[in-house]
Every structure is written in structure tokens, then in C-alpha cells.
Design a protein around this nucleic acid. Structure first.
Length: 693
DNA sequence: GCCTGG
DNA sequence: CGGCCTCAGGC
DNA sequence: GCCG
């Protein structure tokens, strides 16, 4: 029973760790009990335990890769760069300083067996394996591989006898700026043998402290980005370009229209004080400017925009606001951009900008800067080039990751790229985020119009299969606005008979899955069906007024299951591969037998016919257009608009814009949409004129 | 109740 | 100075 | 950041 370790016997002396530099214990992956135990033993042995990582020279952790080690330090605000073995550091209290690290490694390799298990070069990234496996097991398999652990070196076989002077690795400068991250097994070994053993066999990573590597030093952008979104509203947003306003009202140069411009006019002098551009001439503003039309749904916003270049710069600022969690800033810039996007002339004078609703001196001054600075805005370029912003953007582009989570990934977790997420955070991702990461590159690719059309045709075909030929569809979203490439496919599916749209999403998705068009369902929204079923009398003829259903919809991942070289399935066994001939074939083709068709994001929206015009309208506009439809409905009409219908805010009753049972006769979805525009007092515009961004 | 997407 | 589009679903 |  009472086994006595060799080391214990030979050292009559009590273990003394007071010679060691400050030690930091990484809590990561060490349960609280073990940690307390280690802390206790360290204290007993007189070790210098620190809880301030910046003063630690030895960091002990239950981790295994360099990458993770650097990450753990980074997370705790200690930025380091790796010190390599080759950089033969100065010897540390050692006479025979000629033995460099390589030599010592070499010797180690010869004299003991555990070098191969030592670090085990456990550096293969799990991200790399992510592409190989197939289908729904992928997320799991990837996370599984993350759990792989390195075996600790088997030290009991060969106790180590080395000089105390050799305890610390001979790399890096001595002192606080160098930090060595070692495995927990080092401490365990030390305690087991009650003897100090060299770090180097347990060394994961050696780093030298460096400055935080990037960015305009503590630029306001970064400061803002650090703020948690949950904290109080972003503050301190004041541009250096906003002039103090002191003058009384002045008269606008060439024109004297709307009153609202007068209050702006007094700022104008300030704004343009250092602007000596072309004369004061500029074109007669369009009607919507004169009438101070504030809602994007009330004006035409064409695809090709006279001020696209300037808008592009503004969008960079808007993106920065988005990534920093400044939603209100995003709103503001969206409004300004939408107004500029609708302005049909190339701006040549800042006064033109002041005329626009949603634009004021701030934007006018940005335009001046843009004009005087060769088409560049400092804040925009700065944000674009900022490395923090770039990382946040990378994360934000993951489907299912928003600005808040992107910032959490970066500032809290310390991750820098997708590999970090896969390697260190996979299990913490939601299901849809895992899918978003898995198809990251594919989802970035635009979808050509022809492909949108063929996807729509397949959906329509399946909808007809699960119902009948009364199914009608319309592709909405960017496609309908005329974009050459769409980010995703949005399609509205309806049927003139009320009962035929109940449970339709479910049936369509099921049918598509049968033929493997859908690889993942990201979201299934069924409230329409739920409510419809609850409210609607089976035989129809329900009193109008009930009918306020939200829409059923499915957000799915789509892949064309037909690909060149696909093994032909025999007619009989359509689903499972059971025939022996097939097995052989699939085995033979195992390598190239992979569907390389690009995965696409597809939104299938079901609408009852009664409100299909609202659905079409609600899904066809750009973001700002849609938001302004709702604002307009609220502020001008006192209604609440959403893509499943309109109701009066006061009475709560549904507003029938399309007739109690929707449009009839030869009228279709677009006619229904026209009725909605008309009913809201809006001029119907071709979707290509709703390009608000 | 926060976060996300549309 | 307060408000800024709206809603369902996932966690 | 702009509006009422």
C-alpha cells in the first residue's frame, strides 16, 4: 500500500519551490477542486503564486497547444509573441551555456521515450477536417475532435534527474517579459516526486510580452467597440467636423423653398466656411426634397445612384457603427444614405445635402471632407483598415452571429479568426451558428439570377405536389429589385384558397428534404398555421377581422442534389443505399463522390392569399424601405404594418387593404401589392426603385 | 430577456 | 430631450 | 445622427 516514490526517498529535504519565479494557474479546464489542491500544495512548498498574469513567468494550464496558450494569455490582456527554440537565449545562471535548445531537445529525444508524446505535435487544426465529412454529422464530428486530449508524458517510468539550474528553459530573456506556459502534469510530477523537474519537457509555449499589436492606439472606434451592448447607450459620439453654431438664420443661396432648410441654413455658413468650391449653383431639387418627404417608401430609389461613391464611404462608417453596437448610429446613417440614394443628381454643393431629409451638417461636412480629400473620409478609411473592425466583420458575417456576439468572440474570448472559433468555441455555438461557420465561404458567394430562378422553380414544383396547381409563387428580395446576384433566395408562396396555406411550409420542406434539396433547416416559423388553425373555422367564411396571421416561413440551407458524377440511384431504392451494387459503386467513388454544388440560403415564405400583397411588399424592399413602410404606417396612418397584414393601432382591428379574401379575378400577387400601396396612400413603385440599401 | 434575422 | 420597425424563435 |  504505502508505496514510496523513489524521489521521496532520496530527498530527505522538503520540496522547496521558492526558487521559482511567479506562477499563474490557468483556471481553464481545471476543475475547482484540483485547482485549490494545487494552490495549496504550491503554497506549502513556498512557491510564489500570482493572480496577476502580467507578472507571471510560469503559467500552468490544462491545455496542449501553443495557439491555445497564446490565446489564454491574450484573453487576460497579456499579449505575447512566441519565442522560438532557435532564438538561443542567454543562459540563465548556467556555466555550460553552449547547449542550445535544439541540442537539448535532441538529447531528450534520445534518452527518453516521451518526447513524442510530450507535445505530440497536437497542432493539426480541427478546422481542416471540417470540410471532409458529410452532412449533418459534421458539426458533431468537429466538436468531437476538439475533445481529443494529449496524453501526459509517462514520467513514472523514468524519473528525471537534472540540475536545478536547468529548471527554466534556456530561451527568452529572464524576467517578467518572458512567460512559459506549461502543462499541469509538470506540477503533478513535481509533487509526485517531491522534486523540481525541468519545465522544458512540459513546455507548451514560451512568449515575450509585446504591445497590443494593432490599431490606431485606443482609437475611439475600438473603445466604443469594447463596450458591451447591454451597457448603457453608446456615448461620446461627436465628430471633430461639427462646427459650433453661432449665427442667426441666413438665406439659402439659390433657392428659398422649405422652411426646414432655414434652420439648417444657419449652420451652412459654418459648414461651408472653408469650402470654396464651384459656384452656388445647383439644380432645382426634386419634388420629394422640396416637399421634405421623409419616408423612403414615398420616393423612388433607383439601382444606379448618382452619389454611389460618396454613399460607399458612408456605408463604411455605418458598418463601423454596426459592429460597435451603435444601433442608433446605424439607423441615422441608413436614413441619410437612403436620402442620398434617392437624390438624382451628383452632389456638387454641400447645401444640396442640407436640403435632404435625414441629412444635416454632419453628413454635409463628411461630404466636404470626401470632396476635398480625393473621395475619402478619414473616419471611414480608418474604420475599414482597423484590424479590430476586420475581425469583428469576419465574425459578424457568420450567419447567426450578430454584432454583440462578434464582439464577445473577440473581446471576451480573444478569438481572431474562424479557426479559433472552431478550435476553442465550437461546443458553445448555437446549432445555426455552427452551420453558419461550416458554410461561411459558400454563403458569402452571390447567387446568379438564373440559379435563383431554378431554385424557385423547384420550390414551386414541390408546393404544387403537396397541394395543387393553384399554388402561386413570387421571388422577392434582392432578386425582385433586379440585383444581378442575390445574397439569398426569398420566395413567397401562396394559394387562393385559405385552407391550402395551412401547414404548407412544413409540407414543402418535408417534400424538398425527401429529394435532398434542403440540407439544414435554420428556422421554422409556424405561428401563422398555429393561429390560423385556432381561429379559422374549417369551412372558411370566418368573419373578417379575425384574420391576422403572422407568416409561416422556413429559413433553410439549400443544395442542388444533382451533381456530375453522382451515382445513379435505382428507381426502387430512392432513399437508402441498400443494394449491393450501389454499395460497391459508392465505395469506389467514395473520394470524388461528393456534391460540390454551393450551399445557398433560401427563405420560403408562406402567405395566406388574403394578405399576400403585404407579404410581397414586406419582403421586396431594402431594409430601410421596409423600416420606413412601418414608420410611415405608424406615424402617418396610425397603423401597424407587418408582412402578414395591417391593423389599426387604436382599435386593434385588421385593416383590409386587399379585400376580405384578397384580390380576385385575373389579379395576382403584384396586383395585391399595388392595392396595399394604394390603400396606404403610397404610389406603387417598381421594386427596382426600392434600392435603399 | 437578450440576440438574431428578415 | 426622448424616440428611432416589428416579430418569432432559440437559448 | 436626425427629428419633433
Amino acid at each position: 500500500m504505502a508505496l514510496e516514490p523513489d524521489a521521496a526517498r532520496e530527498s530527505g529535504v522538503k520540496l522547496d519551490l521558492s526558487v521559482l519565479p511567479p506562477i499563474f494557474l490557468l483556471p481553464t479546464h481545471i476543475d475547482i477542486e484540483t485547482r485549490h489542491e494545487l494552490e495549496e500544495k504550491l503554497m506549502e512548498a513556498g512557491a510564489l503564486l500570482t493572480y496577476n498574469i502580467s507578472e507571471a513567468q510560469i503559467v500552468v494550464g490544462n491545455i496542449s497547444t501553443k495557439r491555445r496558450a497564446a490565446l489564454e494569455l491574450r484573453m487576460r490582456k497579456r499579449w505575447t509573441e512566441e519565442v522560438l527554440d532557435s532564438s538561443t537565449g542567454r543562459k540563465r545562471g548556467r556555466e555550460d551555456g553552449d547547449e542550445d535548445q535544439q541540442a537539448s531537445n535532441k538529447r531528450l529525444r534520445h534518452e527518453s521515450g516521451f518526447v513524442k508524446t510530450k507535445v505530440n505535435r497536437n497542432t493539426e487544426h480541427t478546422a481542416d477536417s471540417g470540410n471532409e465529412s458529410t452532412e449533418s454529422e459534421d458539426e458533431q464530428s468537429t466538436s468531437k475532435s476538439l475533445a481529443r486530449e494529449v496524453q501526459p508524458p509517462d514520467t513514472s517510468a523514468e524519473p528525471i534527474h537534472l540540475h536545478e539550474a536547468n529548471i527554466l528553459p534556456s530561451i527568452g530573456e529572464p524576467g517578467m517579459e518572458t512567460v512559459h506556459v506549461v502543462k499541469v502534469s509538470w506540477l503533478e510530477t513535481v509533487f509526485e516526486h517531491e522534486k523540481l523537474v525541468p519545465l522544458r519537457y512540459y513546455l507548451i509555449y514560451s512568449g515575450r510580452t509585446i504591445e497590443r499589436p494593432f490599431g490606431a492606439p485606443t482609437s475611439t472606434i475600438i473603445e466604443r467597440a469594447k463596450d458591451d451592448a447591454s451597457a448603457s447607450a453608446p456615448r461620446g459620439r461627436h465628430s471633430q467636423y461639427v462646427p459650433a453654431l453661432t449665427h442667426g438664420p441666413r438665406r439659402l443661396g439659390a433657392h428659398q423653398h422649405a422652411h426646414h432648410t432655414q434652420s439648417k441654413a444657419k449652420l451652412l455658413q459654418q459648414t461651408t466656411s472653408d469650402y470654396e468650391g464651384s459656384g452656388d449653383e445647383f439644380p432645382e431639387p426634386p419634388e420629394w426634397v422640396k416637399r421634405d418627404i421623409k419616408y423612403a417608401c414615398q420616393r423612388s430609389t433607383p439601382t444606379d445612384q448618382a452619389n454611389a461613391d460618396f454613399i460607399a464611404e458612408l456605408k463604411k462608417i455605418k458598418l463601423a457603427r454596426l459592429l460597435t453596437g451603435d444601433e442608433i448610429g446605424v439607423r441615422a446613417y441608413s436614413t441619410s444614405i437612403a436620402a442620398l440614394a434617392a437624390y438624382p443628381y451628383k452632389v456638387g454643393n454641400p447645401k444640396e445635402i442640407l436640403q435632404l431629409p435625414g441629412c444635416d451638417v454632419k453628413i454635409a461636412n463628411l461630404w466636404i471632407e470626401w470632396r476635398n480629400n480625393d473621395g475619402k473620409i478619414g473616419a471611414a478609411e480608418e474604420a475599414e483598415e482597423d484590424e479590430t473592425m476586420q475581425v469583428l466583420k469576419r465574425f459578424y458575417d457568420i450567419w447567426g452571429v450578430g454584432a454583440t456576439t462578434a464582439r464577445e468572440f473577440y473581446f471576451d474570448k480573444g478569438w481572431r479568426d474562424l479557426d479559433d472559433i472552431v478550435e476553442f468555441g465550437w461546443k458553445g455555438l448555437t446549432r445555426v451558428q455552427q452551420i453558419g461557420v461550416k458554410y461561411y465561404e459558400e454563403f458569402q458567394k452571390g447567387i446568379p439570377r438564373a440559379e435563383v430562378e431554378s431554385i424557385a422553380a423547384v420550390i414551386k414544383d414541390h408546393a404544387i405536389r403537396v397541394r395543387d396547381t393553384g399554388i402561386e409563387v413570387l421571388v422577392v428580395g434582392g432578386y425582385r429589385r433586379g440585383k444581378q446576384e442575390s445574397g439569398d433566395v426569398d420566395i413567397v408562396v401562396s394559394h387562393r384558397e385559405l385552407g391550402k396555406t395551412a401547414n404548407l411550409v412544413t409540407d414543402i420542406v418535408a417534400s424538398l428534404e425527401t429529394e435532398d434539396w434542403i440540407t439544414h433547416t435554420l428556422l421554422l416559423s409556424l405561428t401563422g398555421t398555429h393561429r390560423g388553425q385556432a381561429t379559422l373555422p374549417f369551412k372558411g367564411a370566418g368573419p373578417a377581422g379575425h384574420g391576422f396571421d403572422t407568416l409561416d416561413k422556413a429559413l433553410v440551407v439549400w443544395q442542388d442534389p444533382n451533381w456530375p458524377g453522382k451515382p445513379k440511384l435505382s428507381k426502387a431504392s430512392s432513399r437508402s443505399s441498400s443494394s449491393t451494387g450501389e454499395q460497391e459503386q459508392s465505395k469506389k467513388k467514395k473520394q470524388q463522390a461528393k456534391n460540390s454544388n454551393i450551399h445557398r440560403r433560401v427563405d420560403i415564405i408562406i402567405s395566406p392569399w388574403r394578405t399576400v400583397g403585404c407579404a410581397v411588399m414586406g419582403w421586396s424592399g431594402g431594409t430601410t424601405f421596409q423600416r420606413d413602410v412601418r414608420r410611415y404606417a405608424k406615424n402617418v396612418k396610425g397603423w401597424k404594418f407587418d408582412s402578414s397584414g395591417v391593423r389599426d393601432r387604436r382599435t386593434g382591428l385588421a385593416v383590409d387593404l386587399e379585400g376580405p379574401e384578397g384580390v380576385h379575378g385575373g389579379l395576382g400577387m403584384v396586383d395585391a401589392e399595388k392595392k396595399v400601396f394604394e390603400g396606404m396612400g403610397l404610389v406603387w413603385r417598381d421594386p427596382s426603385e426600392r434600392c435603399t440599401h
